[in-house]
Structures are given as structure tokens and as C-alpha cells.
Nucleic acid binder design. Sequence first.
DNA 1: CGACCGTTTGACGCAACTCAACTTCGGTGG
DNA 2: CCACCGAAGTTGAGTTGCGTCAAACGGTCG
Lengths: 241, 241
Amino acid sequence: MTRKDIHNSDVPELCRACEARHRGVCGALSADELLELSRHTKRVEVAAGTVVISEEEPIESYANVLSGVIKLSKVMEDGRQQIVGLKFAPDLLGRPFREVSGVTAEAATSSKLCMFSKAALERSVKNSHDMTNQLHQQALRELDDAREWMLTLGRKTAYEKVASFLRLIAVASDPEREDGHNEATFQLPLTRSEMADFLGLTIETVSRQMTALRKSGVIEMETTQTVRVPDLARLHLASGF
Amino acid sequence: MTRKDIHNSDVPELCRACEARHRGVCGALSADELLELSRHTKRVEVAAGTVVISEEEPIESYANVLSGVIKLSKVMEDGRQQIVGLKFAPDLLGRPFREVSGVTAEAATSSKLCMFSKAALERSVKNSHDMTNQLHQQALRELDDAREWMLTLGRKTAYEKVASFLRLIAVASDPEREDGHNEATFQLPLTRSEMADFLGLTIETVSRQMTALRKSGVIEMETTQTVRVPDLARLHLASGF
DNA sequence: CGACCGTTTGACGCAACTCAACTTCGGTGG
DNA sequence: CCACCGAAGTTGAGTTGCGTCAAACGGTCG
């Protein structure tokens, strides 16, 4: 028993400081299982613009997002594009139980990933009921997000859409915000063009709404990518509530 | 062993003709488990317009859709509404692992449901790894659908949106269509107003695009709810491909 | 410095919305 | 049976929010 305890505390070097072990899917694994998975693991750093998974190609690996932002998108044959999700640490990339993911995953900012083979993850799933559960939970969270965004895409004005996006980023960039703290500053992980693809708008309209939000005092901008929100409640209102 | 075999073939009366046992979540259960679940089960028939689950109220039960169409929707405070999903037999209604569903489920047509308590389902999940898996699979399918629809909402024209909707219904109304069979006739489960809420449009625009599709020969209409598609490939094209 | 890329701003056009009239249909009661 | 009603759908005329096209404005890099 003592030996087992020691063994259990022997978390793989690679995983020791990893956020995915606390808030992500790897939290479901015991030290032994973690060790096994980590043997098939490769840490990579990708530059903005790198395609991690492409829409119609077979998936051969999964990846945990360790830092940065990954955008999931779909394109039509004529080039029209829609971003259908954003992944932050410690989300998992990949579509379980399917050969093709149906979406393209591309780094929006430079990002760190922890990649492992499809087979390795599937082995973990088989051995750990908790792991299965974690994956299920993540799928449900993504579904909630997708539906929330459908409301935004279908029914909100351009102004509300941009405000909704800023709110999304404000929340994601500081998940542990205390409630009283009513202010936020952050870097936008997306260009205007990517924001447009997320919101179902054009670059120009996004830009105009950003100016409108600035002029009405809801946001302040240092550079084109740095946003300060002096009053999150006002932003909330601007986003349609 | 023989006794067990006999026992296993003893599928509860209620479940015998149920589609959910073949293509739905109940397929994951053994006869014993099915029997246990069926003890906490209530078959109900609801009229069009009945609210099955409401957005911000605690969930106390789940339900399998046996027939009919259930719409899932979200509303904004000012009344703007977006349908975020449609459920057909043998889908499962309910959001596992959460107190509130976040969406309202309402019968679009008169529907038959097989309802069971949250507790009963959760017991099944605990006992059956397959059941967990089924739920996970359904969540992933719903996620794929939601993302497909985000592309429609964000990037397609009104004409393409309506065509996409008709295609969705055509496929759902006859899941076992053979490939060569290039024609379809079906009843629309939604009113124009509901279609508008699904597509992020107004009633008038939906109506105009329906006439446009009719005039261009992509569809024919017997009544306002009966649609015939003489050539599914043309409808496919009209929906943006 | 000049070339380039991402962004902003302006002028204009059009797809979808709004408002309103009319038609169709199913139901209800005289 | 028909007259009447309300709800759902269609159609038209006018408006507008967002898209398109075009020009100008920074940053960054060779």
C-alpha cells in the first residue's frame, strides 16, 4: 500500500504543472493512467494560423489546449466561412467516435498543445469511467455554448453581436474573476476578419460596431487588439440583456 | 443460463414496439435494466404547443421522443426567439448533469413521449456503461447539428436558409431513404413563424422564399404544410452547395 | 523610406425587415 | 348550410441595417 501511494504521487514530469490535470480531462486519470497516457504524448507549440485538424481529413490525434486560443470553423464551397467555436485551455480538441471532425481547428494565437494519438486516448477512455464522463461533460458544455451562440447569430443586431463577443472573451480571459470586480482588460485573440467570421458579419461592420462601442463608452482601446471594459454590467446590457 | 435467456427475452410490454430500443438510448440496456427503468416510466401524448421543459426551471424528468417533433428554443428578455434544435424520435430530451436545461422544449406537433424521472435515468447511467456512451453519442450528434446550423445562421442567404430547413426535414422524415430515391414528400412540422424562429428570419421572408422555391420548381406544395421535392439534388444545391 | 497588411471610415446599394392589406382555411354558432 | 370569426399565410410598398466598393490611415518589416 505504501508503495502504491508513492507510486500514485509520481505524476509524470510533463503533466506536473499542467492545467488540464486540474480543470481538464486529465484530471480524471490516476497517476498510473496519466503515466501511461503521457508516454504517447507530445508537447508542441504552434504559431498563429497553423491548422491542427482539417475539416475533411481523417483524425489521427487529439490534443489538449495548454495555452492560446484555437478556433473551430466550417467553410462553404464558395469560401464563405463561419467560426463555430473557440477553444481555450484546458479544452480538448478532437471529435471522439468519428473518422473526420467536420470542423477545421486552427490556432488563432500562438498556442501550446499536448497531443496524443487517437489510440492512446481511446485506451484511456476504455480504462477510466471518469475519463468518459469528462469527455461527455465537455461535449455538453460545447453544446450549451453552441446553442447560446445560435441565439446570437440568429437574433442579435451587429452591435449586440460584437458586444457579446467581447463579453465572451472577457469571461474566458479571466475565469476566476470575483463578482464585485466589475472591470476587465484583455487582448483580443482574433483579428477583425476572424471576429467577422465568428459573428456572421463583415470586417467593416465589426469595425464600425467597435467604434460605436468605443464612442458610447462601453469599451476603451489602447491598440486595435487591447480592450478595456470599465463596466462589465454595461457590456452585458449592450450584448442584448 | 437457460432461465437467464428466457428472462432476457422478457422485454417489458411497454418497450416492445418502441423505436428507442433499436435506434435510441434504450438500446444500450439489457432486458433486466429495461425492466427496471420501465417501472419508472410514463407514456404521455402531448398536443402541439405543450411546454415539456422550460428554460429556467429545474429539470425533474427526462423523456424519449416516440413520435412527433419537439422544438428546443431560447428567448431573449425582449421576446426575440431562436429555435436551437429539433428533436425527432428516438432522441432523448433533457440535459444530463445540470439542474436547469437552459432551453425550452415545446411540442411542435402533437407528440408521444416516454417520460422517466431524473433519478431513474441516472441509476441506469450508473449501471450501464453503454448507456453513458449512448448519451455521449447523442450529445456529440447534437453538437454536430448545432455547428452545422451555426453556418446556416451566420453565412447563408434567406433563400438558402429556407432550402436548408426543407432539406433537414426531408432527411428527418425519411431516415432510411435509399440513395437512388431522389424525391420526397412530407408535412412541415413547423408553422411559418416557427420556421422564421429557426432560421433567424421573419415570417414574411420565409413565406417569400417558399414562393421563390416554388416558382423556381425546387418544391411543389399541396397545402401550406405539404411539400413535395421532385429532385433532392436541386434542393441540395439551393441550400448552398 | 516604401511596401504591405490590418484596420478604419465614407458613400452607396441591396437583402431582409417593417407595416399593412388581402387571401385562405378551419372552426363555431346562428 | 352558410355566415362569421380568428389564426395562419401571402403579397406589396417603403424603410433600414448591414454588405459592397473604395479610399485613407497607421503599424511593421525588409
